[in-house]
Structures are given as C-alpha cells and as structure tokens.
C-alpha cells in the first residue's frame, strides 16, 4: 500500500534532495518564475506553499524557519515583505505550473513554475487581471499603497493582448 507515501524521491539521498529543493525554492522566490522538469515543478508547489504560509505568519519563529530553507537572506526578506503580502485572501495554491514540452537532450518534460500574481513588465496579464482585481479590493483598507502598484503594471503590456484577439 502506498498510504502516507507522499512526495517524490528523485533518485537522490535525502540530503541531496533537500539541497536541490532549497536551491530551487530560493531561485523560485528570487526570480518569481523558473523552468525546471515537470516532476520537480510539481514537487516544488507543496514546498513553496509552506514557505509562503510562513511568510504570512510572520514573527521571529517564521523568519528563522524560512531562513532555514531559503539559501539567501535577501530572498528570505523578500518572502516576508513582498511575496506573502500578495496573498491575504488566498489559502494555499500560490504557484502555477505550466507545461512547456520536452527538453532537448534527454526528452524530460519541462515546466514553468511561477508565483501567482507576479507582475513583471513585458509579460501579459490578461488572464491574471480578474484575479488581481479581487485581491486589492479586499486588501485595500489595509494596504492601499502597496496594492495599486502591481495593478498598474499589467496595463503596459498591451501588445500581447492584441495578438490574442487576432
């Protein structure tokens, strides 16, 4: 029976696996989106959710717990100051995995993992905007200064929207 056997092992020792996921998590939070194999991407979701939940909790214990996972103090700070602030109303499911096809060389299925609500210029936000609107409404009384900023950026990349209509 495979009861209580969640997770993947990736043919690695526990130490190797832990090191690999720490690196992946750090880079996911640093760049907001990373490409990796589909299996690693799917495993990364559960780990990233836990770190973001810690980021929402705040407090010294959470800070130290995050620092014990993330390899970079700057990125750990970002989790508390930026990333966790995006999800006041969302209980988990902070990441999105999109399949990208197969890698040249070994044919491994590749995926893009991203933190939801990321607003980088040059990226289209058509699909995200409806979701993004909900969050600021609820969060508006609390932090009106921070929320409008990520809302404005989606307006810039208007070109990809045209492309989708054509």
């Amino acid at each position: 029976m495979r009861h209580k056997n969640a997770g993947r092992k990736f043919n690695r020792t526990p130490a190797h696996r832990k090191a690999m996921f720490r690196a992946l998590l750090t880079n996911l939070f640093r760049h907001e989106k990373i490409e990796t194999t589909d299996a690693k991407a799917k495993e990364l979701r559960r780990l990233a959710d836990k770190v973001i939940t810690l980021g929402k909790a705040g407090g010294l214990h959470a800070i130290r717990s995050v620092a014990s996972v993330v390899n970079d103090a700057e990125v750990a700070r970002k989790i508390f100051t930026t990333i966790a602030k995006r999800f006041p109303d969302r209980l988990g499911g902070y990441t999105r995995v999109v399949k990208l096809g197969r890698r040249m060389g070994d044919g491994a299925a590749m995926s893009l993992v991203e933190i939801i609500g990321e607003t980088k210029p040059g990226k289209k936000d058509k699909g995200k905007t409806p979701k993004g609107e909900k969050t600021p409404k609820a969060a508006a009384p609390k932090k009106p200064k921070e929320k409008p900023a990520p809302e404005k950026e989606p307006e810039k990349p208007a070109e990809p929207e045209k492309a989708s209509e054509g």
């Binding site: 999109v98 399949k99 990208l100 096809g101 893009l112 040059g122 990226k123 289209k124 936000d125 058509k126 699909g127 995200k128 990349p157 990809p160 492309a163 989708s164």
Partner: peptide
Amino acid sequence: PNCMEPMLPHHACPSCGQYKGREVVH
C-alpha cells in the same frame, strides 16, 4: 487558439508561448 499552430494539449504553445490566454514564455 492564438496562433493556430499545432500544440500539445495542456502545454504552453511552442510557437507563440501562450497558454490559456496569457503569455507564459516570450
């Protein structure tokens, strides 16, 4: 649905980089 090229289902389109109406890869 965006560029009419063939693509794998449940994948980002390899020719235009879109998935579910948003650009995933540039």
